[in-house]
Amino acid sequence: MTRLRVICVSAFLVAALAVSAYAQPGGRPAQPQNPGSGVDTPSAQGTEDKTRERSGSGQADSGMDALRSFLGSAEAGYLDAGTKTAILELAAPALAAGVPEGAFSQRIREAVAKRASPAAILDALAVDADAWTRIVRLPGFDVWPPSDKASVFYLSAGAALRNGLGLEAVRGVHAWAMASGGDPERAGAALTAAAAVAYAFGQPCRDDLARIIAASRLHVGQFGHVAEFARRAGSSGMGTDAFGRAVADVLASGGNLSALERRLFP
């Protein structure tokens, strides 16, 4: 009887510990550090993802309301009423399709901070909205990425398409994430790295490069090195095909960054 009691108490405490560990939040610092927390603050992410729509007019309305509210705030800066109306008009179909409102507000923040002209802002947002809409309509994007990190992913994916990657690259990363439970931030970082590779070569790279980087054993902090290698490879005369082949051979077979560097620069 005593032994049974001890086992029960032990099991209870272990379960309590497990619940406690599972309940840990995602890792934002509790207190901002000097000079700033450097992590996504409410002002940085705005109303990100709180109003993510999938379908239905109610959800789309809430996304539109959030964007309208953002455009009415001081963060919209110098944008005039006509520009704001035009932004709402071009954003409406994307929001209705399920693009998170946070992606729009973050891009507008960037544009306003850079003092871009209203015409440039509208052009850029139209390109982004089109890219995001095409992405959100791909199969499986109604269940991934999860809403709390959707804006980060869409911003990365939009930048990737803007910098020469094809929709197939986004589809590949999505397939990897769905199959392996991949993190949207890692997926977004892989798309950014692949886009930086394309930017470094000045031409599109292979469509599966982002998926290979995401699925590799590299940690996210090493993704930038792949882009750096691309810059070195480009300046040494290597073509994007040879570079992509080397990355695929090494990373897809479980190789690390050193192995990739040896392969690229023997």
Partner: peptide, 9 residues
């Protein structure tokens, strides 16, 4: 290590 076009010129 990574450079991108920002879409605003």
């Amino acid at each position: 290590p990574m450079l991108l076009d920002d879409g605003f010129g």
